[in-house]
Design a protein around this nucleic acid. Sequence first.
DNA 1: GCATATTTGTCCGTATGTATA
DNA 2: CTATACATACGGACAAATATG
Lengths: 236, 236
Amino acid sequence: MTTPAQASETTYSVLAAQRSYLDRGSRSTQIADIVRTCILDGAFKPGSRLSEPEICTALGVSRNTLREAFKSLVEERLVVHELNRGVFVRVPTPADVTELYSCRRVIECAAVRGLDGNSTDLDTLHAALDDADTHAAQQDWTGVGNADIAFHKSIAALNNSTRLDRLMNDVWNELRLVFHVMDDPHTFHQPYLERNHAIYDLVMHGQHEAAERMLSDYLSDAEQQILAAYSPAVRT
Amino acid sequence: MTTPAQASETTYSVLAAQRSYLDRGSRSTQIADIVRTCILDGAFKPGSRLSEPEICTALGVSRNTLREAFKSLVEERLVVHELNRGVFVRVPTPADVTELYSCRRVIECAAVRGLDGNSTDLDTLHAALDDADTHAAQQDWTGVGNADIAFHKSIAALNNSTRLDRLMNDVWNELRLVFHVMDDPHTFHQPYLERNHAIYDLVMHGQHEAAERMLSDYLSDAEQQILAAYSPAVRT
DNA sequence: GCATATTTGTCCGTATGTATA
DNA sequence: CTATACATACGGACAAATATG
């Protein structure tokens, strides 16, 4: 397993490749976007400290601007800010995993239960399933994972609430942090593919209670599988 | 009704009274706390612009520190940040009200449905009801309002999720913004007091489905009442 | 346990671009 | 259109806290 390590000097070279994005929005939000993708892609590993001076020089921005960007990431729970010690990439605990799946259960199940007859917005669900099938045929497991995430994000989006969508977005970002700590996340999503199909079929046929039950079981199984495979780095 | 106005110079005098709080946490979070309470208390009205230089001088902090504080408030949706124009206290739209009540419905209803037999955490619910009764006897309607909020926050807290709690906290802060735009929010919560009692009794007797139905109706009625009384300031 | 070096927290001055009167 | 006010961003400075030897 990969133990969270101090980010070395050369680690920040990945930032240079992101500098081309510097042409839209305010500087601090641009910087936040760059650092966020670096964290989500695993370039900055959970537990590592993000050095202000090094990132500033790597991105060519002042410390003030970087600190503004950090504020957003703290709010998204991707990094933690320890006073006079700096910011660290968050290391989710098993309790975090449990909570994240509680959020998913509450929001996703509410979405399928709240559906009435008019099934207009279900096209995105179908598209995500097709996407997953395509990637699975090519044995592209990260592609399957992204499609799985898109499918369940689309379920949550049926609540028609941008606030819940934003929460789910943060939840999935945190789960990507969890996957980075896990041993082998590559094939994690694959076995759940046909259960997604089953849930979709039940929803399409108006069997909302059955769909909700199946979704709830799905989430419980996934949660347990993650907790079993989860050996978090101790950094308390 | 109170039309959202530009915050005049003298408006920032309310900040001086908050300066005594400057002794815990980091500066930017302290500043964020002060400005947040000023917004929630109505000292900074929805739609008004928050001038950087004036607040800086009023609070005796630098622009960098204030801008860091603003970042948090933007994330909480209490203020909006328009590029190169500054930050404004948010003016919730009717669509926002609808969405906020969608969030409440999803999260609060999930909480009462998810209850099993062991009713250990229901003491906070009872305490909030007692509190509301006390304030109602004294005709202290803002006290009743706070107790009403505490009661429903406690319901949401039964989900045992700090992330959902934080979302609900932001939701309630936004609703306080809504109340500041409304004509007469003072007695808004009072008629819902006995419905809270009824919901509590149903939960206590294990009648979760009935409690959920009553809670859902409660939320629909409150939403409609707010939308009817809501004359939002046009600031598009 | 102490002294030093590093890093953070905060503030200031200033230049540039943008929006508004 | 000009002028003013303001937000954006940079760089430098210093104190305080932390980490390191």
